[in-house]
Design a protein around this nucleic acid. Structure first.
Length: 263
DNA sequence: ATGGTTGTTACACAA
């Protein structure tokens, strides 16, 4: 079973890229973040044409928004109160016996201090809520938590560890929040499992670089986490980042991250 | 140390 997570930065502008990636990869499930539209504006017909006609759309006007598109039927599960601001950041779907969490965590603004920066406080709050929720669940569930978590947790998930420790996405309180989330249900970081440190691994490169490959100031913000019940399937599978897509004309600033479960 | 770009929106903002 192949799953892809991709922060698309507007689903409507990026429809041609989506169709190309779907044609290349033939995923069972595609989790998109930052769709930047309301559910009524979502290009449903295009996804039906791609063979991903089963949709769980969680959208709002202008910003944020996530959508899960599947080849297989989806059961829409209830929101679990992840975002205290009521933003469209979390779609939970039951697909072929898996509970797929499509997540877009807050970026967190510029100042890494929850006392002076409400956006950073909100980011930490989202992680605290996820940690509490997963921590309270019975053991043995088949959970996949994937999306743009907006944290690069490891030293080799950033282009410059020492510099980035002061920059939101890689600060100590964020790395600790990510660690608590991982521990809450003993999640496996699937992509890192297949490409262990110290190999650098990025899924996002800023639009502001003239040549993202030349400067290669990337971050690994997009993740696929699996619960222990899926660890064997994840380890027997594979995962990779389609960083070539970041080099296409008018790309998203995030690359698609592909994860294949041997189920 | 600074500024660089993009998308949606409305005359900035978030990323």
């Amino acid at each position: 079973m192949k799953l892809i997570t991709w922060n698309i930065n507007s689903v409507r502008i990026r429809l041609d890229h989506i169709a190309r990636v779907v044609a290349d990869e033939d995923p069972d499930v595609l989790c998109l973040q930052e769709i930047k539209c309301q559910p009524a504006e979502f290009p449903r017909a295009a996804f039906e044409d791609m063979g991903l006609g089963h949709l769980h759309i969680c959208g709002q006007k202008g910003w944020h928004g996530v959508a899960t598109a599947s080849k297989h039927p989806i059961t829409l599960l209830d929101d679990r109160g992840t975002c205290r601001e009521g933003q469209a950041r979390h779609a939970i779907s039951q697909i072929k016996g898996l509970e797929v969490h499509n997540l877009y965590c807050p970026a967190g603004g510029d100042v890494p201090d929850p006392e002076v920066n409400p956006k950073f406080d909100h980011k930490l709050d989202v992680f605290a809520r996820l940690t509490q929720d997963f921590g309270g669940r019975p053991a043995g569930e088949k959970l996949v938590v994937m999306g743009d978590l907006n944290i690069a947790p490891g030293e080799h998930d950033v282009w410059n560890h020492k510099y980035m420790l002061k920059v939101v996405s890689h600060t100590p309180p964020e790395i600790e929040a990510m660690g608590r989330l991982m521990a809450s249900y003993d999640f496996l970081d699937m992509v890192r499992h297949h490409t262990p440190a110290p190999e650098k691994l990025f899924s996002w490169w800023s639009y502001r670089a003239k040549d993202f490959r030349a400067s290669n100031r990337g971050l690994r913000l997009d993740h696929v986490l699996v619960s222990p019940a899926l660890a064997d399937a994840a380890q027997a599978g594979r995962s990779y980042t389609r960083d070539d897509v970041r080099g296409w004309d008018k790309p998203s600033d995030h690359a698609p991250v592909v994860a294949v479960l041997d189920v």
